[in-house]
Design a protein around this nucleic acid. Structure first.
Lengths: 235, 235
DNA sequence: TCCATTTAAAGTGTCGACACTTTTATGCGA
DNA sequence: TCGCATAAAAGTGTCGACACTTTAAATGGA
């Protein structure tokens, strides 16, 4: 009744794992605001568990870079600085470029067909316009997710899907990024998929890097105007 | 007396952190052999602590990808497959290329001077030849470590220095990689530092990627001959 | 002898309790 | 009233104990 239902279909056999997933979702979606302190007894009581499993979940959150812990001081949800957001974009550019190249070399024909179908669906959603851009953005993550999976590099998959993507989602929830770039992004996605379909790894990498760079510059532009409008309180 | 002295100078204030460091070192150096099961009661007894802190250390080792844990089955030290080694090389090529570019843009003049001094020292060590190539290899890590630090990208530093470098060191301890490539590597290092000193980010990235690629191919070659000699038991 | 079933042992997951640290509240003096 | 010292409260780190699962051994039957 109180939102503790397992929204995640993956029934984690251990309590610590389940709470880790729940906490991660709560943090990423902003339900636990950034910078706020997480009290172990309070959280344990909220989830109806003991402090043991909760501490393990906290350790995993720390390793996922979602909370910062200092000895004897407790844990706080990380604060979202624009510098860190740009740091993540740079890493994504390098790693997803690699992922696109590997995907072009190793992705199965069926997976490529699925990817094309996904893009087709996005094209329809954008055409219908009034549907929230939010879904498009989640679809954007879905697109990137699949390409990374297609790379077949397990460690690459881990870094991007287990860590960076959650952080990216967190930033998006924070700043409420509605995509004014949906059409451009879709076009770039299509170029990437075309390169993958033609097994042109070099081109796929180039296109993916350019795509993420464009996305980063869009964010930079937005952050810049945001700060100037903040400073424009003294005209 | 039994090597449990704190070789790490950083006195971790919490037991879990200290044991994490000790276990990581033991795993990386091969003292706890790959694939071996880690029993919680046994390890807790060996380090003279309770299972609570040990479990937290294990969680951190899991997040660092040094052990694999499955619910109710326990933890095992990861096994070292050559595929995973090549995966890491690919990621390092992408990320350290980025690091070199950023370092060229942002590294302080003093840090660059230190880097040059380090290379000078390596040159001397190689000239003296008979000194174990081992030191050169550790020096290689030191070189890469400094450039990554020089990138100033905190998350990049975290991924490489906290995770990948330990794994790379683990592989080296496992296969006993003595560098037959010391001279070539040193020359490549010098090219990278020159590019950084001239603030040529593009060139620094290119050189770093080429350097890591060369190192990867060297490993690939060695792994290939290793397997063929293994198969050559039926002439 | 071999295989299946049952039983005991070991091991992991979880919990509640205690020690020590940090923070907050309180009281005293200037 | 303000500042400092002291004390109480809250919180984190650690420990030992218990429940459940997995694994191993032991027992019985074909």
């Amino acid at each position: 009744m109180e939102a503790q239902a397992d929204v995640q279909p993956d029934e984690a056999s251990t309590i610590a794992d389940r709470v880790f997933g729940q906490l991660r979702q709560a943090i990423v979606e902003g339900n636990i605001p950034p910078g706020s302190k997480i009290s172990e007894p309070e959280m344990a009581a909220r989830y109806g568990i003991s402090r043991g499993p909760l501490r393990e979940a906290m350790r995993r959150l720390e390793s996922a870079n979602l909370v910062e812990r200092r000895p004897n001081l407790g844990a706080r949800v990380i604060t979202l600085s624009s510098e860190q957001l740009l740091e993540i974009y740079m890493i994504r550019e390098a790693l997803e470029g690699l992922a696109a190249r590997l995907a072009a070399e190793r992705m199965s024909a069926a997976a490529i067909a699925d990817l094309k179908a996904l893009l087709e669906q996005h094209r329809g959603e954008i055409a219908r316009e009034y549907w929230q851009a939010y879904f498009q953005k989640e679809g954007d993550m879905d697109f990137h997710y699949r390409i990374v999976q297609g790379s077949g590099n397990q460690r690459l998959i881990g870094i991007l899907c287990d860590d960076l993507y959650h952080l990216a989602r967190m930033y998006r929830c924070k700043f409420g990024m509605v995509s004014n770039r949906a059409r451009d992004a879709l076009k770039e996605h299509e170029l990437i998929v075309d390169a993958i379909a033609e097994r042109d790894g070099e081109l796929a990498e180039l296109m993916m890097r350019r795509h993420i760079r464009a996305s980063r510059r869009n964010v930079e532009r937005r952050l810049a105007t945001e700060t100037t409008t903040q400073h424009r309180t003294d005209p």
